[in-house]
Write a protein that binds this DNA or RNA. Structure first.
Lengths: 126, 126
DNA sequence: CTGAGTGTTATACCGTTCGTATAACAGTAG
DNA sequence: CTACTGTTATACGAACGGTATAACACTCAG
């Protein structure tokens, strides 16, 4: 599982890790019940404190993407979470804000649809 | 120009103001060369410090959406900015992250396209 | 010219978040 | 027992968001 972090980004490191794991699950690089690196191992590999990795893992566990058990480690959930309040309350407004910004910058509607296709046409196994 | 702020949101107030102005421009509620409320007036109306409004206005000015001149106030730019590096470097990655999250939550592709239409079907005058 | 309105700049303060760091604790497997 | 897991608590420094006060510079109506 390859994973890189941009220390210069305004996006928090633990959020980058979280997104990267979700991305890997979506791409199929991480399959259900597959074991993730330990928080200490991944932290060491990324040059990041393991508490930062733990924060990302904890959030992923809270959201139902992975399961964590002390002594065993973390693994991808057997069945992935579906639409939940978080999507409606947080993701949708953020998307609309980005769409509006794109629109006011005269970005073509098809450009945005193409971005969706670009994401949805990638590997999809679960 | 109606404008509301959600103090409970994780999105910074000045960002909410910025987005709301962009939204108003996109909707046509704010037309080119139209004068915006002064930073003090809007701050007072929103129950927010005027420096917070100033921060939003300054960012909008940096991005080319409005112009500010001391003694005169702020007004919508005569010609709106087009696609710029900010869109490619910041907006696109954020969109992809949101799309990926939607995908992994088994949100239908059409749901996202519908959101785009919802934004693009609104008034558009400039 | 005066005064009231603009934006601009500087400084300070407080609370929260991010990331690091150290330490200790508790469960699992060889 | 040992070495690995995650878990919890605490602390520190840097950065950010928001408020607050003050002063400054410009514009325009009176």
């Amino acid at each position: 599982m390859e994973l890189t972090v941009d220390f210069a980004s305004t996006v928090p490191i633990y959020t980058q890790i979280r997104n990267a794991v979700i991305q890997a699950i979506a791409d199929g690089r991480l399959k259900s019940s597959e074991v993730l690196p330990s928080v200490r191992a991944l932290g060491s590999a990324l040059g990041v404190n393991y508490h930062t990795v733990n924060k990302a893992y904890t959030q992923l566990a809270d959201e139902g993407f992975i399961t964590m058990r002390r002594g065993l480690g973390a693994m991808v959930a057997e069945q992935l979470p579906a639409v939940d309040p978080h999507f409606e309350a947080e993701v949708v407004p953020q998307m609309k804000a980005l769409f509006t910004e794109a629109k006011v910058r005269t970005v073509d509607r098809q450009t945005l649809v193409a971005l969706i296709d670009q994401v949805y046409d990638e590997g999809w196994h679960h």
